[in-house]
Each structure stands twice: as structure tokens, then as C-alpha cells.
Design a protein around this nucleic acid. Structure first.
Length: 424
RNA sequence: GUGGGUGUAGCUCAGUUGGUGGAGCGUCUGACUGUGGCUCAGAAUGUCGCGGGUUCGAGUCCCGUCUCCCACCCCA
């Protein structure tokens, strides 16, 4: 039990666990690279207004989940609660604002002051993609979704559900909002407190409510998309057609609204059972992000996946992460002269790209062999006075116990390792 | 923010009606002086989450607090 624990909802990732993270990260780089996306590393914190303006002041995230503090000059800063706003802030200084396409991805920690639960941390990690600058296009939307599915396939996640919906554009909304409000208002007395507040602040969020008392009214609610313009509905149909043509299964869910206000047109969410109540592993959509200091919002489409959740799902599916790296050669030392020799010999091996382990306490033979076994060293070389004398030692293969006589030099060991690898 | 569960050795967990804290695994040492895994023998290790209270005496009972887990909520 640690004397001092980390703050609630954050945790350490130890080396044996980190291998799984590295695997996810390199899979992301590989897959996104195939689509022409490059990595953009933005700061962990931004001026608070980047998120306030970007995500919408009415969103849950902005209202009560942000870690906000003042710097020494009294300016308000916020630890990023999601990745898109920071990416857009960075790209706002480029020609993305003039309609030039930027394809970027990011990965890293995000911060939200929520109550921790299964698959939910206060510092969590997202890997995300943004295609920014180009005007809205069903092709780009479908490509983002296809890329997300490709990524999941690459990391061994199967059996997920893809839900998609359209949120229309700003001019589509008033008619739909009015229809929704008219539908819900007569039943408000029977609905939950949150929804009573939401009807005036943001009717859409009612569709997202999971309260049992609200559900019947939500299910009988009209599909907002039916009030959208023909252009918007056509846009969404094209997205669906493109997915179908690529053989990507999906479900249209008219209730899917998502929590951030910046979405327009296509929104999607990827869920997986076996995660507990937090069943969303990734989500995204098309957006128009309004940033401070910019006259017009910048268009984009993207998604973010929760890395912790991906790992939980992967684990549940029985995908085993690669083992932590083990030393190729353990150098056992008998006596001070041997230890001195091994110290510099280990350095030579490491510079030659061979991982080497050594115990500077140079305890008993038995304890060194045990240490080599425990760290799963592939080979052991025992060096004592007689080996130094002869400039020759035995290279022992730990798995099967066979020993090979080798010259006690870098070339000698490298040659023996190469030869032994071939015989296997 | 609300509710439920939980907290004992590095890990997984026992701990009987309150009476000087245990097991397994792991670790360390050793079993014909320089060869691991198996076996055997020994050893080390805990402010029993933290703070109060009741009591002659609290890991055990009471109160508070925090963590973690689970759910609500929200989302990734």
C-alpha cells in the first residue's frame, strides 16, 4: 500500500501494462498513417475559452467537469477535457481556416472531474483523428468512420456496434426543436428533473436521457431528422450508402445526439458490451467549431476513442498484449574482476543492440542464476577467474539448458547468438 | 454531485462472542566451495486506510473521513 496515493481517478501505468498501450499507439500511427494522417501534439492545457467556446457553454463537460485554474497572470486555464478543441485552436492559425484540408491525429491524456467508475477516470486517454478545413462531405464522414473501424480491427477488437445519426445543420434545428418541445411539454410533469430543465436549455439532450420515467416519451418522440432540409437528409443518406458499400454494418439511431454542442450532420458512437455501464468506446462526428478570435467556425470531422476502454474490451476479448521486453543475455559475475569485466562487456553488448542484464551486487551463483531465470533472460554467460584467464566462457540457453562455448569478446558472443538463433 | 460495497504482508485473502496478527503465492538464505526452473529446510516483511470514540484491552464495536470498486449521471 503506497504511503501516498495518487489523487482520485488517476493511476500509474507500469511497464508490463505499458506494452499494451504502446501496441495501441503504434497501431493508431500505422492505420491513421495509411489514410494520410499525421500526428499533432497539442498542449495539455489551453485558455479556458478555447473549450468554452468550442464545446458549447451548455454542455455537461464545460459546466461541471473541467479542471480550471488561474495562471500567475490571472488568466483562466483549463486542462483539456477532450482533444478536438485544442487541435482546432492549433489549426486555426493555418490555412485550414481558408478551406485547406488538414489530416491530423492525436493521442494523450484528457481530464474530466467526474466521479470515477468502471472505464471512467479523471485522467484518461484518448486517441483521436480530425479531418479539418474542407467543406462538409459525406465521403470524408464515411472515411472517418471506416478508419475508426479499421483501427479497431487492427488492435483485435471485434463485436462492437456502430450507431450513427444526423444532427442536421443550424438551419435545420428550429423546426425539429419546436416539434420535440411540443411533444415533450405535455408530459413534463411525469419526467425527470433534468429533462424539465433541458426542455428550454437543450431539448436534444432529453433524447439521451436514460431515466425509466422519461423513456416512454422519448420512444414516442418524432424523429428530428424528418424536419431537416432535403439537403441534410440527402447528405446523411449518402453517408449511410458509403458505409454500406464498404461493408461496414451500422445502426441508425435517431436518439443519438452526443454530449458536445459542436456537432452537425453526421454523429456516431461505437459501443461494446462487456464494459459495464460505460459502454461507449469511441465517438465522433462532423462539427463546426467556433474559436475565439475567428469570424467563422472551422469545419471538420473526427472521432475519439477511449484508450482505457479499448484496453478493457480487448482484455475481455482475450487479446493478450505483448510481454514486457526481457534481457537477451544475463552476465553472471563471480568475483570482483569478473564483475568489472562484465560491467564494460554489458556496455558493449548494449551498444551493439543486445539487451544485457547484470547484478552489481554480484551475490552467489545461485542467486544470480535465479535472478536471470526470474527476469526471463534468454541466455546466461557465467564469468569467473578461469573464464577471464581463458578469454572463453559458456553461453547457456536458459530454456533448454544447452551450453555453447564462446569467445569472451563482443564478436565472439554476437557470432554465437546469431548462430544459435539459426539452429532453432 | 447522490447511493451501495470495500480497505489486514509485495500479491490473493483468512482472522472465530473484543484479549500481544495468520495462510498461500512471491521475496531472501541454505541443502558436497561456480549453474536457474522441481523438491526440502529456514528467514524477513505489516503504524490491520486515516482520525476520533466506547473499553482494563479494538483488526474486531460506534462515529467521522479518505481511497478503490459498482451504480446513477455523463461520456471516451
Amino acid at each position: 500500500m503506497p504511503k501516498i496515493a495518487p489523487p482520485p481517478g488517476v493511476s500509474d501505468i507500469f511497464p508490463d501494462e505499458a506494452t499494451a498501450w504502446l501496441q495501441l499507439e503504434s497501431a493508431a500511427r500505422k492505420v491513421f498513417g495509411l489514410y494520410g494522417f499525421g500526428e499533432l501534439r497539442t498542449p495539455i492545457f489551453e485558455f479556458t475559452e478555447v473549450f468554452q467556446r468550442g464545446l458549447g457553454g451548455e454542455t455537461e463537460v464545460v459546466q461541471k467537469e473541467m479542471y480550471t485554474f488561474e495562471d500567475r497572470g490571472g488568466r483562466s486555464l483549463t486542462l483539456r477535457p477532450e482533444g478536438t478543441a485544442g487541435v482546432m485552436r492549433a489549426l486555426s492559425a493555418t490555412d485550414a481556416a481558408n478551406g485547406v484540408e488538414h489530416r491530423v491525429f492525436y493521442m494523450g491524456p484528457m481530464f474530466r472531474g467526474e466521479r470515477p467508475a468502471a472505464g471512467r477516470k479523471r485522467q484518461f486517454h484518448q486517441v483521436g483523428v480530425e479531418n479539418v478545413g474542407r467543406a462538409a462531405s459525406p465521403g470524408l464522414d464515411a472515411e472517418a468512420i471506416a478508419m475508426l473501424c479499421h483501427f479497431l480491427e487492427e488492435i483485435g477488437i471485434t463485436g462492437f456496434n456502430l450507431l450513427i445519426n444526423t444532427r442536421g445543420v443550424a438551419s435545420d434545428r428550429p423546426a425539429a426543436e419546436q416539434a420535440l418541445a411540443e411533444h415533450f411539454r405535455p408530459h413534463l410533469a411525469e419526467m425527470c428533473d433534468d429533462c424539465r430543465a433541458r426542455i428550454d436549455r437543450n431539448v436534444w439532450r432529453i433524447l439521451d436521457c436514460k431515466q425509466a420515467c422519461c423513456r416512454p416519451f422519448i420512444e414516442s418522440a418524432p424523429d428530428p431528422a424528418q424536419f431537416f432540409s432535403a439537403e441534410s437528409r440527402d447528405y446523411f443518406r449518402k453517408v449511410c450508402d458509403l458505409l454500406t458499400e464498404q461493408g461496414i454494418p451500422f445502426t441508425v439511431d435517431p436518439r443519438l445526439v452526443r454530449g458536445l454542442d459542436y456537432y452537425v450532420h453526421t454523429v456516431f458512437e461505437l459501443t461494446h458490451s462487456g464494459l459495464g455501464a460505460q459502454n461507449a468506446i469511441a465517438g465522433g462526428g462532423r462539427y463546426e467549431l467556433q474559436l475565439p478570435g475567428l469570424r467563422n467556425p472551422i469545419p471538420g470531422v473526427g472521432f475519439a476513442a477511449g484508450m482505457e476502454r479499448l484496453l478493457i474490451v480487448r482484455d475481455a476479448l482475450g487479446v493478450t498484449p505483448p510481454p514486457a521486453p526481457v534481457p537477451k543475455v544475463y552476465l553472471a559475475s563471480l568475483g570482483d574482476a569478473a564483475l568489472a569485466f562484465n560491467t564494460s562487456f554489458a556496455a558493449k553488448l548494449r551498444h551493439a543492440g543486445i539487451s544485457a542484464a547484470i547484478d552489481y551486487d554480484a551475490k552467489s551463483m545461485k542467486s544470480q542464476m535465479r535472478a536471470a531465470d526470474r527476469m526471463k533472460a534468454e541466455y546466461v554467460i557465467v564469468v569467473g577467474d578461469s573464464e577471464l584467464e581463458a578469454q572463453s566462457a559458456k553461453l547457456k540457453h536458459m530454456a533448454d539448458g544447452r551450453e555453447i562455448e564462446v569467445k569472451l569478446s563482443l564478436d565472439g558472443v554476437l557470432a554465437a547468438l546469431a548462430a544459435d538463433a539459426e539452429t532453432k
